[in-house]
Nucleic acid binder design. Structure first.
Length: 577
DNA sequence: GGATGTT
DNA sequence: AACATCCAACGCTAG
DNA sequence: CTAGCG
């Protein structure tokens, strides 16, 4: 029976060119055994998981010809449900493994993926004695280019680049592997080192269970004490004695096994998550005698879990930027959405609309660098010699967010390129009552564009309209203008009661204005996943075409609903990530 | 939101 | 110390 | 022609 090789937990990643790195995916360790007869998924304890993940098995069967030359084959990897290429949803895979009924329905709606990170057998030959580099190279040739139910875990040569990936995707952590490491089955080895991407949060110790030595941690939500979770590991002998002595001296024994303490002792906990009164992989980090129990609250916990870049000073986190949405809530949204939003901002001059005191107060545009901006904000000079701002990374995004930047607008072309990356039809009905016209226009444009070989995408504008994005190659603005004008005219001819290219507002009536003039150099459009400055905190949301119906309500896509939406359905602009 | 200038 | 101002830019229109 | 508007 296969037993997985295990990495040793360390606090810091080793560097040097004898090491190579992989992202640590948060799912189930799994061995995939593929013989001429059958395909089996083995858990780390030797359980057969195949029946729980039929989508993996059937995908393999459909792609047998691709693998035939390498059979029999044994892959070591992780069974995951993806949110991004590097971010996974552990809760989902855990649920899946427990499900008995309707497995096929779940496997269709939210298919699991096997991410292979090692190769133990190929053509019936054991590769365990070979170096990791050799195995990794062979694994690459076998899995090259595959993006389906089986993928290869990419390897990173540079420590800095994997740290950046782990950080932005908030991955579980990373594994450093010695290039010359052999595969030592069932052993915890120093040639594989895991580094966890811990979140650090502060909690109040209120209970001690003498039976199992678990300490209960709590936090304040408004005035009431709520349970954060339990923690047992990480305390050194002396620290544990200090704590238990304190319990015996100042606490009360509430039953045979449990001591209770009024809120006074605070500690930092390292963990992977803190949800529903449960900490995942909690480890004691340090006592916090320098803070008050009231400092352990929803605000500081949200902040700890978000893992904001340390380079950004956050301020006035309790301020309301949208009704019922504090600046911290907004920054947490930006932090979560960053891996989906940054690709749409990368290498494009940014036009930021800032609302430092919230959507109801004074606002202004900004596209040049403030002279006090930190040096990590990247810029590019424009024709007038001014420094246009860029948003290339997480710390920039969070810095702009902290400055009340609520709307991120970008041009159609990237920096150092004159030609647009896409055509965008901005379909803005005169009011929400006429939203159905935008839906109709979007589908008509989709048909026309697909007929010409394009692959149109669609998103809400975050206000009342829809925007059809058509990725293009090698077209100038002049050429896109010709195509857009022609398309607009076909639309108007086909339904002059609903569409118009009339520029004067008073002459438009309740028709939808197809504005191809706004697709030009220097013009901008709201970036995917940017919020709009509305009372509902609406988001410019990429959609699947089958969602674009007359019953679609663009107001439902807000910073409250988007993370859940993406966890369930993924991102329709996937190609951009 | 923060720097700088004005009362 | 309190308060004001700046933070884009381009086409269009009324006067 | 320019200030103001969107």
């Amino acid at each position: 029976m296969w037993k997985p090789m295990l990495p040793r937990l360390v606090n810091e990643a080793p560097s040097g060119n004898e090491w190579i790195y992989q992202v640590k995916y948060d799912g189930f360790r799994c061995g995939l055994q593929w013989t001429d007869q059958d395909i089996t998924l083995w858990s780390r304890n030797g359980h057969d998981l195949s029946h729980s993940f039929p989508e993996i098995i059937s995908w393999c069967q459909q792609h047998t010809s691709r693998f035939q030359a390498y059979l029999p084959l044994f892959l070591d990897g992780e069974l995951i449900i993806t949110i991004t290429a590097y971010r996974t949803d552990f809760e989902q895979i855990q649920k899946r493994s427990r499900i008995k009924k309707n497995i096929n329905q779940f496997s269709q709606n939210r298919p699991a993926t096997f991410v292979a990170f090692d190769l133990l057998e190929s053509k019936a030959q054991s590769l365990r004695k070979k170096s990791f580099s050799t195995r990794d190279q062979l694994l690459s040739t076998i899995l090259e280019g595959l993006t389906g139910r089986i993928r290869k875990a990419p390897t990173f040569e540079k420590l800095d680049s994997i740290l950046e990936v782990v950080d932005i995707h908030q991955a579980e952590g990373m594994v450093a592997k010695q290039k010359k490491a052999t595969y030592t089955e069932g052993k915890r080895s120093n040639t594989w080192l895991k580094i966890k991407n811990f979140r650090t949060i502060s909690g109040i110790v209120t209970n001690w269970n003498t039976e199992n030595d678990y300490f209960t941690l709590r936090y304040y939500h408004n005035e009431t004490l709520c349970i954060l979770g339990k923690c047992k590991n990480g305390l050194e002998q002396g620290e544990k004695e200090t704590l238990t002595t304190f319990f015996k001296r100042y606490g009360q024994k509430v039953n045979g096994t449990t001591w209770e303490l009024d809120p006074s002792v605070c500690m930092d906990i390292n963990c992977l998550s803190a949800e529903d009164q449960e900490l995942r992989e909690p480890v004691f980090h340090q006592f916090r005698f320098d803070i008050n129990p009231t400092d352990c609250n929803q605000l500081t916990i949200d902040q700890g879990l978000a893992q904001f870049p340390s380079t950004v000073n956050l301020s006035r986190l309790e301020k309301e930027l949208f009704p019922t949405v504090t600046k911290l809530n907004y920054l947490c949204y930006l932090r979560w959405i960053a891996p989906f939003m940054l690709p749409g901002l990368k290498d494009r001059r940014l036009t930021l609309i800032r609302f430092p005191d919230g959507v109801h107060e004074h606002s202004f545009y900004q596209k040049h660098l403030s002279d006090y901006a930190p040096s990590f904000i990247q810029t590019i000079s424009n024709n007038d010699g001014e420094m246009d701002i860029l948003c290339q990374d997480l710390q920039s995004l969070i810095w702009f967010g902290n400055h009340g930047g609520l709307e991120f607008h970008v041009p159609f072309n990237k920096i150092n390129k004159a030609d647009p990356e896409e055509i965008v039809f901005d379909l803005d009905p005169p009011s929400l009552d006429q939203f159905f016209i935008a839906v109709r226009a979007a589908h008509l444009i989709k048909e026309m564009m697909e007929h010409q070989g394009f692959t149109p995408l669609v998103k809400t504008s975050g206000r009342t309209g829809l925007q059809v994005h058509i990725p293009i190659e090698n077209m100038t603005y002049d050429e896109t203008r010709v195509l857009m004008e022609a398309t607009a005219k076909v639309l108007v001819d086909s339904d002059p009661d609903h569409f118009t290219i009339e520029r004067l507002k008073k002459n438009r009536g309740k028709r939808l204005y197809i504005d191809y003039v706004q697709h030009a150099p220097g013009k901008t459009i709201i970036a995917p996943y940017s919020t709009r400055a509305t009372d509902e905190a609406t988001v410019a949301t990429p959609l699947y075409w089958n969602e674009v119906t007359e019953t679609l309500d663009p107001r439902k896509f807000t910073i409250h609903t988007i993370p859940t939406r993406i966890k369930e359905k993924g991102c329709p602009f996937n190609s951009m990530i």
